[in-house]
């Protein structure tokens, strides 16, 4: 997040540790905003740790129906051997909630990676080169952007996996479906930034001294256009989880024997709810809510800290944070207001 082209160099640069993305914001924040950021980071941290240590934490496998004492039995109330009860299919609820973090994390990583690469690349090309290609891409991105994301994801899921599938195919299908939907968002932001940066003096200087187009694009423009990415990244991760759950809920998720997926579990619990069996829906649902809440809190805080109108100021400004603030403010505001006016993320 450091700016390679600083016009007026700060008197003394803060240590590297303080300039790292999250750490920088954490130091910059005060009061409530710091509280929200810390809460978000904690929830996200728990989510990541659960995903990594799922094999250790989960009492049973996600597709395990029986142990040495025989079958678990369907719809067992919480308590005893099954802390959170069992589902209508006879799975252990706690184990499926824990294993579900792995599926969610895998989908986020693949989906966000894919959409960042595709969206950033297209946005950069479109914004820098312009012309008819730019116009066509903008019209397509706008059309896709205005359409219900879930419906598009359904169509993509049908195409990729024809419906249900294995862990690898299912994760990939969900991730690609989500990617198709989110490319336009990255595209729009990066394109807007690129168009703005293109007219900056340092890009012209680079042209004058004879730098190649690709060098200008990737060294000068891309470096400066990506400062808003951490923000969109967090917002899209949470949307990816919601879309995955939505697909699972409609029966386009991953088979229960291939992986644990919260949306699928919720779908199976619709009829349970009517008969008062609450544990099969409440726990996977809470897992979704907490993970999305955590990631969104981080994204929200980053957004507010990047926008001087929304940032709570520290009472007495320290010299280093003052410089960083003035330096960061302007371009980020332009990009965030671009996302804000569309109502993203929610």
């Amino acid at each position: 997040m450091t700016d390679p082209v600083v016009t007026s160099a700060p008197p003394r640069r803060a240590p590297l540790w303080h300039r790292l993305p999250i750490v920088h914001q954490l130091r910059q924040s005060v009061g409530l905003q710091r509280g929200m950021l810390i809460a978000g980071l904690t929830l996200t941290g728990i989510f990541l740790l659960t995903a990594i240590f799922a094999p250790v934490l989960a009492p049973y496998g996600f597709a395990q129906l029986r142990d040495d004492n025989g079958f678990f039995g369907a719809q067992q109330a919480p308590g005893g051997a099954h802390l959170l009860g069992t589902t209508v299919g006879g799975y252990d609820v706690l184990s499926r909630v824990i294993w579900g973090t792995q599926t969610a994390l895998a989908v986020i990583v693949v989906a966000v990676m894919l959409s960042i690469f595709a969206g950033v690349f297209l946005g950069l090309i479109s914004g820098y080169i312009g012309g008819w290609l730019d116009r066509v891409l903008v019209v397509i991105a706008d059309a896709v952007f205005a359409f219900p994301t879930l419906l598009l994801a359904i169509v993509a899921a049908i195409v990729i996996s024809g419906g249900q599938s294995t862990l690898f195919g299912g994760v990939l299908a969900a991730a690609v479906s989500i990617t198709v939907v989110y490319i336009p968002q990255y595209f729009r932001v990066i394109r807007a930034e690129t168009v703005r940066i293109k007219s900056e003096a340092y890009v012209e200087s680079a042209k004058v001294i004879g730098s190649s187009t690709s060098r200008i694009m990737f060294r000068h423009v891309l470096r400066n256009a990506t400062r808003t990415l951490p923000l969109i990244f967090t917002l899209n991760s949470s949307e990816a989880i919601l879309t995955l759950a939505g697909l699972g809920f409609l029966g386009f998720g991953i088979e229960p024997t291939s992986a644990a997926e919260w949306g699928y579990d919720l779908n199976r619990s619709i009829s349970d709810v009517t008969s008062g069996i609450w544990w099969t829906s409440v726990f996977p649902g809470l897992a979704i809510v907490l993970v999305v809440l955590g990631i969104t809190l981080v994204g929200e805080s980053l957004n507010d800290l990047a926008d001087p109108r929304l940032r709570t100021r520290r009472k007495a400004d320290s010299p280093t944070s003052g410089v960083a603030t003035a330096d960061d403010a302007a371009p980020v505001t332009a990009a965030t207001s671009a996302t804000d006016s569309t109502g993203a993320p929610a």
């Binding site: 809920f249 949306g263 979704i288 809510v289 999305v292 929610a346």
Partner: peptide, 8 residues
């Protein structure tokens, strides 16, 4: 409100 899927 945003983090809760409508079906949940």
């Amino acid at each position: 409100f945003y983090a809760t899927p409508v079906f949940f």
